[in-house]
Design a binder for these strands. Sequence first.
DNA 1: CCGTATCCGGGCCGATACTG
DNA 2: CAGTATCGGCCCGGATACGG
Lengths: 125, 125
Amino acid sequence: MDVTEPVFEHRAECAKVSRVLSRIGDKWSVLVIMLLRRQPQRFNELKRGIGNISQRMLTLTLRNLERDGLVSRTVTPSIPPRVDYALTQLGHSLAEPVQALGAWAFDHLDLIDAAQTRYDASADR
Amino acid sequence: MDVTEPVFEHRAECAKVSRVLSRIGDKWSVLVIMLLRRQPQRFNELKRGIGNISQRMLTLTLRNLERDGLVSRTVTPSIPPRVDYALTQLGHSLAEPVQALGAWAFDHLDLIDAAQTRYDASADR
DNA sequence: CCGTATCCGGGCCGATACTG
DNA sequence: CAGTATCGGCCCGGATACGG
């Protein structure tokens, strides 16, 4: 990155934090984390729990979460095979602020909807 | 959305929450919110503060935040024109859990980096 | 200074088919 | 059951040019 020192010196940290946050915001990760928060689950349990995610995206999401050390993957080589996913300790510690943010979102859904409606109405046509 | 009732009844809420969270995770919104948290700022102040954002994306980001009722936009029709952006009350209330998440990200950056390195190393080749 | 309009390349993501 | 492989659309987002 050619970040040419914009204004504050803590830019580099911001960039890193931003990278972490973009993982959280990638549409599926949060849902997976919330589902795993209650208990470990198998691949297709997660798939059904989320409902409209494609197999491909669930795989990718889980791989990324595993790579970040947030989710553990344990394979039981039986027939048929069994794979369990669970939050790591790191994953659980992340789940807390995520939960807080989710709670905020939930609490303010109607305010946001109202604001959007208002905005769209005033932006006539 | 054709969500065909997957497992739990609170799916609809999850979808809405997810929509809100995806706004937060869209790469720039969080940075804008953090910058506006300290004080209102003008367009190019924000641009310089972020450093590598394109004019287009800053505009879009601010429009979305304004649409959600998180940011206010006040125009002073002078020459040259002046536009100030500030967090609304709703925006400030969002800034808190976002800040918490940012703090978590910051605190665990090294753990995540380490996990990634470990993962990439074990995924040989 | 603060935007909007247009072009366009890359990557995200769903659909589908195939393996162990 | 739990994936990998491949293809293709489409949207995100940067670059550039222009207007109030």
